[in-house]
Amino acid sequence: MSTFLRPPGVLSEEDFQKRCISCGQCAQVCVFNCVELVPDFFLGGTTPRLYQRKSPCFLCMKCSAICPTNALRDVPMEQSGMGKAFLDAKKCVDYQEEAMVMCWTCYERCPMKGTAIVLGRGGYIPEVQDACVGCGVCEYVCPIHAISVVPARHLAGGG
């Protein structure tokens, strides 16, 4: 539970911290009650977090639309920029030829199915594409935790 995501439309972590005034509107308008308000430390703000293993973001984009300080920018879901999913081919059953399984759970549940996760290699093995915004739904639904999201602030070049 230690890794968490910032809500969609998030700026770089540094700019986000500067702008977030802890008004909590993002958490209050979240349709799926996924955004949690977590005190960073005593005198820091109470900033929004998503724990993707507990409740991922379904990219309804209500939070980024209401954010009054643009700490979360009002962007279309394709530009959410929360992070990026990484699929562990050693764990994923679809990659194990001897297992003869077509799980596809991540692909089926991906809010950006067909662009963020596609079925490659002849159309039966899920592959994460650059379009992935890191909403965390795949990590939430994967039955064997073979796919996980790295938050944008931990990615090289981003965040």
Partner: peptide, 17 residues
């Protein structure tokens, strides 16, 4: 109210909608 999907009013005394 927000928890019950009524979002006409949202926020706190730092910023309000």
């Amino acid at each position: 109210l927000n928890r019950a999907e009524i979002n006409v009013l949202a926020g706190n005394f730092l910023a309000f909608n």
